[in-house]
Amino acid sequence: MIPNTFEYTAPLTLKVALALIGEGGKPLAGGMSLIPMMKLRMAAPEHLVDIGRIAELNYIREAGGELHIGANATHYDVESSPLIVGKCPLLAETAGHIGDIQVRNRGTLGGSVAHADPSADYPAALQALEAKIVLTSATSQRTVAVGDFFIDTFTTSLEPGELVTEVIVPVEAGLTGTSYQKFLQPASGFAIVGVAARIRREAGKITVARIGVTGVSGNSYRALKAEAALVGKAGSDAEIDAAAALVGEGVEAGADLHASAEYRLHLAANYAERAIRVALSRTA
């Protein structure tokens, strides 16, 4: 299938890109979601601003106890970066679950985050990591907590003219274990349910628990009740089960061809259990 016509610009600097985006240009990152939608003529932007050539968006670095990842890092970059694998393994592990080799080679962290697909993998990890998203426009820059960034299905707090330019995740201290567990939609490879767990256990007691969930509803979220249920516990099977059972509580689950709301909620609990269990096993 054939996209509609559009104007195309590929600026080399962020400054030029932001000016064009400010004039209504649609940013094109890896294009893994946007291009198929254009081919099916479900999207028809008039002006594409290809940010793929902007070198200043292509970095992964550590600063101030955090990892700063430029928006143009591909999923493969995230999956294979020694810095991310070593210091924020949850994000690397999650990136490895996205799509397939070809999609990971081309799709970018910034593009995926900005697209806010409710079945995307990253949001679960970013929620669990309490990541921060840097949004830049021609005139401003702000850093938004991930919980405030994702608003709803395909909806974020990006204002017109703003671009996702960086994602900030914490450097994991020792004693923290993480895991991402995903139940695949068999045709598309997207997550019907994806759960990221990040748990710190000190002296046999869980001191920090963060659980991010994707796929279940129109928006990713942190399972606060499940997190609370874990803190202070040793992490016995019964405690894990009890906490995991709370993952879908109060959540309005989505339903589609591939899974009913009831099944999604059930899977969320089940996959939370797996994620917590694996994360705990990695705290040692």
Binding site: I35, P36, L40, D50, G52, N105, R106, S188
Partner: peptide, 29 residues
């Protein structure tokens, strides 16, 4: 296919395997 799911169009661009049905030629400049 049109949806980047079959992989029959896979080529390498700068050493990375990608689906050439989901990339504009201008992006490969």
């Amino acid at each position: 296919c049109e949806t980047s799911l079959c992989g029959a169009c896979t080529v390498e661009v700068d050493g990375r395997a990608i689906k050439s049905c989901t990339m504009f030629a201008v992006q490969a400049n």
